Every structure is written in structure tokens, then in C-alpha cells.
Computed example of a mutant assay.
Amino acid sequence: MTDEGWAWSDAWIFVSLVIAGKVGRHRRSPGSRRPEGVRLVDVLATAEHLNQAIPSREEIETGVRRLLGADLVSVRDGWFQVTAAGERLWRDRPRSGLTTTVDSVHGVLNRRYATTDGDWRLDDQDHTAAMVEYTGRFLPPAPRRSVENQTTIQPGPA
């Protein structure tokens, strides 16, 4: 048990898992969701969308460990799921706009849940693979150089 309380990034990871997993009651019923959950790359993309930043490896590992300790999420074979307790937290949270959802969930975590670390570690290779996939799938390609900066190779005589 730690006495530091929940970090804002813990709530950020939780909300990212909820949205990536389409757990909100306006989305899908539990029976229609993918049973395996969501992958880390999807959590990274959702987190970046929410906060215009990608969570660090440490933020992911600490957040998931704490969420596991509170029985709000589960992780199996690299797939993340929100548990029934996590769905209740999401359903019962104070309503707010998307921009303040992480803040409201952070407040709920600090008021209702002790911070106990679960047993989980984010493997360096898994994190690297997710980052590589994320940058390949979700980040825009580098801008093309303008025509005036490119050298044109002229064909030689035949």
C-alpha cells in the first residue's frame, strides 16, 4: 500500500482504457465487446487523443499496476480489459465534458480507492513494439520536401 494517492496519469490511463475498449454505456453492451480487450497500442492512441501526449512507460506501468490493485482493470496476454468494478466507476462518475473527464475520474479514485499495486510489469520489448506500431499507424508521415528542394536526375543519352 502506498500513501501517495492516485496520480493524474493513473486516471488518464483508466479513461484511455475505457474509451479504447468502448466500455461507455452509450457504446456497446458487455456481450458485444471483443472478449480479449484492447492492446497497448490502442491505449496509447486514445491517451494521445485525450491529452495530446503519449504516456511514458513509467506512467503506463504505474497506472496499470494501481488499477489492477484496485480491481478496476485486468491484463491477460497483453490484452487490457476494464473489470465490472471499473465499469461501475465509469458509470457512476460525476458527469463532465470530455476535457475534464480525466480530472473527475482522478477525484473519484482519490476519494474511493486505496492505492495498492497489482502484480504486473510492462516488458521493454512490448512497450517498444507498441510504440513502433503506434508511430506507424497513428502519426502523420513526415512532410514531403518541396519540388524546388529536390534534385532531378536527367536521363542520359541512349
Results as ranks from 00 to 15, higher is better:
4 E>F: 10
4 E>G: 13
4 E>C: 09
5 G>L: 10
5 G>R: 11
6 W>E: 11
10 D>V: 02
11 A>E: 07
18 V>A: 09
21 G>H: 02
22 K>Y: 00
24 G>K: 11
25 R>C: 07
25 R>N: 09
25 R>V: 11
26 H>F: 08
27 R>K: 05
27 R>T: 04
27 R>A: 06
27 R>F: 01
28 R>T: 07
31 G>Q: 14
34 R>H: 01
34 R>I: 00
37 G>Y: 00
39 R>E: 14
41 V>A: 06
42 D>G: 03
43 V>F: 02
45 A>T: 09
45 A>C: 07
45 A>G: 08
46 T>I: 05
48 E>L: 07
50 L>H: 12
52 Q>P: 07
53 A>W: 05
53 A>E: 12
58 E>F: 03
59 E>S: 12
60 I>T: 08
65 R>F: 01
66 R>G: 09
69 G>E: 02
71 D>P: 03
72 L>T: 06
73 V>E: 01
76 R>C: 06
77 D>Y: 13
77 D>V: 07
78 G>C: 13
80 F>M: 04
85 A>P: 06
85 A>S: 15
87 E>M: 01
87 E>Q: 11
88 R>F: 02
88 R>T: 11
91 R>M: 02
92 D>W: 03
94 P>G: 05
98 L>G: 09
100 T>C: 07
101 T>S: 11
102 V>Y: 00
104 S>K: 11
105 V>E: 04
108 V>K: 06
112 R>E: 15
113 Y>H: 15
115 T>Q: 14
116 T>M: 09
118 G>Q: 04
118 G>E: 05
119 D>I: 01
119 D>S: 08
120 W>N: 01
122 L>E: 11
125 Q>D: 15
126 D>V: 10
127 H>R: 11
128 T>W: 05
129 A>I: 04
131 M>Q: 08
138 F>H: 14
139 L>I: 13
144 R>A: 09
145 R>Q: 12
145 R>C: 04
146 S>C: 04
146 S>Q: 11
148 E>T: 15
149 N>L: 14
149 N>C: 08
151 T>F: 13
153 I>S: 14
155 P>I: 08
158 A>S: 14
158 A>N: 14
